[in-house]
Design a protein around this nucleic acid. Structure first.
Lengths: 160, 160
DNA sequence: TCAAACCCGATCCTTCTTGTCGGATATTGG
DNA sequence: CCAATATCCGACAAGAAGGATCGGGTTTGA
């Protein structure tokens, strides 16, 4: 049984402007574990939480957003659990992280259609922020879940 | 006079795992304004805060880290203020953002020499995080302050 | 000496993160 | 039908981080 952890004692899991939270970390670890354990039958959250030593109840919340995003399927009731909705090599890590952490928006002026900033067009700084945003998306999308799920396998990179 | 703002009313300036805080935004706006106003004499913080409509006292804190990083020089006393330590085209935005927001470390396992994670080498997920880190650094460093300080000028991109 | 600046630490409020808890709902097997 | 096993879901709470304000200290030019 994983020992209980106190709330709010861990802080962010990175420093600076590019920091994934535990949602991102735990969610990715969940996905990798699921990809390894998924052999047809649903895998229960409890099994994965124990295997990865993650707080079960909290993980439940996190996994909800993966389900809502259509990345995994869930089966309720006895012998229920989770399954990959698609083969691991068709799951881009960008989709996983966006589901877990929300859209990648380094600065509010890039939100939605960009109308929140009145100076769009005359502001050269947005070029910087949008370049960062695109770079991160590309980096994340260059990995699939299959790249991470098979340990020791050479990382296959797409594009770039 | 810039109207005073109440503490904690603005929140983060982005969403998701890649979100610059106001330190990043205000600091960059400070640098761009300084680059435009710097004609030899030091420019006072008050002038820049008013021009950009930023909270003066808070900006003072932020600017301290730019000074400590050697990106700007300060002159105390009457007629004091700030100056660029180097020409604008030699100031990489990556240096500015790292000074403002701290080192770019998307996940704790990448901190320092990477010894904080015992599984280095066997863990395929670090590949993902370090790729993201490098992408962001490259994106930021492909801009110089001069690219942002001259409005309307075509953005000149290095590399990539 | 006086005023204009930078410098610096302490403090404070708000929001986000990281959980826990309790129960509702769905499903299967006996 | 019933009990066991899961997912689902909303409320709640402690702590950390973010976003400032404030008051005073120090430096310098006129």
């Amino acid at each position: 049984m994983a020992g209980e952890q106190e709330p709010g004692t861990r802080g962010l899991h990175g420093t600076g402007a590019v920091a994934f939270s535990t949602r991102g970390e735990y969610g990715v670890r969940f996905m990798v574990a699921l990809a390894r354990m998924d052999h047809g039958d649903p895998v229960s959250l409890t099994d994965i939480a124990e295997a990865e030593d993650l707080p079960r109840a909290y993980l439940e919340q996190i996994v909800g957003s993966l389900r809502d995003a259509g990345i995994i399927d869930s089966a309720r009731g006895a012998h229920g659990g989770y399954r990959l909705a698609r083969p691991a090599n068709e799951v881009r890590m960008g989709d996983v992280l966006r589901a877990l952490e929300g859209p990648i928006v380094p600065m509010t002026c890039l939100e939605g259609d960009g109308s929140s900033c009145s100076k769009t067009g005359s502001c050269s700084v947005v070029q910087l922020w949008s370049r960062v945003r695109d770079s991160v998306s590309e980096a994340l999308d260059s990995f699939t879940l299959a790249d991470l799920a098979v340990p020791g396998a050479p990382i296959t990179l797409k594009g770039r």
